[in-house]
């Protein structure tokens, strides 16, 4: 009888472990709660917050290290860079870093660019050693970052100066700096062009990366904040903060195909394996899990003012539009 009981217990434990593995197989979402000084760890399978990792003051954004060992979280007011295990969510270490707002590694994994939004500086670090190579004062409120595919140029928006700047990552020289419109935010290299979401206007500016010429503007909605290319490279999504919408664009033509209503201040987003978009809602202390096909979404409550989001279900995002001619990426 005792053996039977023991067998039942063991069987239950194995079943539970298998079930847990199945749940974990879909991975975790890390959501930065800027106003709650915490990182919400959300189980992707059950769409539930499972725990919170406390940080010091005000984290905003994150980046996966090129070797995929750590998820770096920038705590701006805490002046810390936090190294998180991207699988377990455990804190591995912290290093002092002034005002790390946005942070992004170059495609070749050799350079880390960090913007100090409150201190008006752009820092270029060696990605392996975190040694500061260049510190540049280029304008007010440096914010979002993106790179050319060859990693030689970093593009940074200057939110209060209303400018976009192209920086040579090797020398720290400014290649060009242009006026782009009121409060530029998200920036993305796409198909040989640099796209900038201009928050004080109603859409994107399309910029020639060679000389900084603005080639055209594309209306997507008021308060265009950030833009993301889908993993299959077939869809471009733009989060419009003021209108409370996600605009769906053809990345080849930049024609807006439709708009999905998503109130609550849509900000960053990431892509889940099932094709859904996980979108932070800055003013609604939640993440929306949005089905882009139907426009319907479910809500996951997280901490105050959720900002950056990353799912550990993928390693990286595509940098090329599907079907684009070679050399255009």
């Amino acid at each position: 009888m005792r053996w039977m009981t023991l067998s039942l217990v063991l069987f239950s434990v194995i079943l539970f472990s298998l079930a847990s593995t199945a749940a974990r197989a879909q991975g975790l979402a890390f959501v930065i709660d800027s106003g709650a000084a915490a990182i919400s760890v959300v189980d992707v399978a059950s769409a539930r917050e499972i725990r919170r990792v406390p940080v010091l003051r005000e984290p905003h954004h994150m980046a996966l290290t090129p070797d995929h060992r750590f998820l770096l979280i920038g705590d701006t007011a805490g002046n810390e860079l936090i190294f998180l295990d991207p699988v377990s969510g455990g804190v591995a270490r912290r290093i002092p870093m002034p005002d790390p707002y946005q942070l992004q590694f170059s495609p070749d994994g050799k350079t880390l660019v960090v913007t100090e939004l409150a201190r008006n500086r752009v820092d270029i670090y060696d990605a392996g050693s975190y040694h500061l190579r260049f510190r540049l004062a280029l304008g007010s409120f440096p914010s979002h970052i993106n790179f050319s595919p060859d990693s030689k140029t970093a593009f940074v928006t200057l939110q209060q100066s209303n400018q976009l700047v192209a920086i040579a990552t090797g020398s720290g020289d400014v290649r060009w700096k242009i006026d782009i419109g009121d409060t530029p935010a998200g920036v993305l290299w796409l198909d040989g062009r640099v796209l900038v979401a201009v928050m004080g206007r109603d859409g994107l500016a399309v910029v020639n990366p060679a000389n900084g010429a603005i080639e055209r503007r594309v209306a997507t909605g008021r308060g265009a904040h950030n833009l993301f290319l889908s993993p299959d490279g077939r869809t471009l999504y733009v989060a419009n903060r003021v209108d409370g919408t996600i605009a769906v664009l053809d990345p080849k033509t930049l024609v807006v195909q439709r708009e999905i209503s998503l109130p609550g201040g849509p900000d960053d987003l990431d892509f889940a394996p099932d094709g859904k978009l996980w979108v932070t809602r800055r003013f609604a202390h939640s993440v929306a899990v949005l089905d882009p096909a139907s426009g319907k979404y479910e809500i996951i409550e997280v901490g105050r003012s959720p900002h950056g989001i990353w799912l550990n279900t993928h390693d990286h995002l595509p940098r090329a539009v599907a079907g684009a001619p070679a050399g255009h990426s």
Partner: peptide, 26 residues
């Protein structure tokens, strides 16, 4: 209270900042 503050930010403060050209303070 967070919900109310979020509603004010989304429906009053942010649209006002957008119209005034002050989105950098959003």
């Amino acid at each position: 209270l967070d919900t109310i503050a979020g509603w004010i930010a989304e429906h009053a403060a942010i649209p006002l900042l957008w119209h005034l050209g002050l989105m950098q303070w959003e």
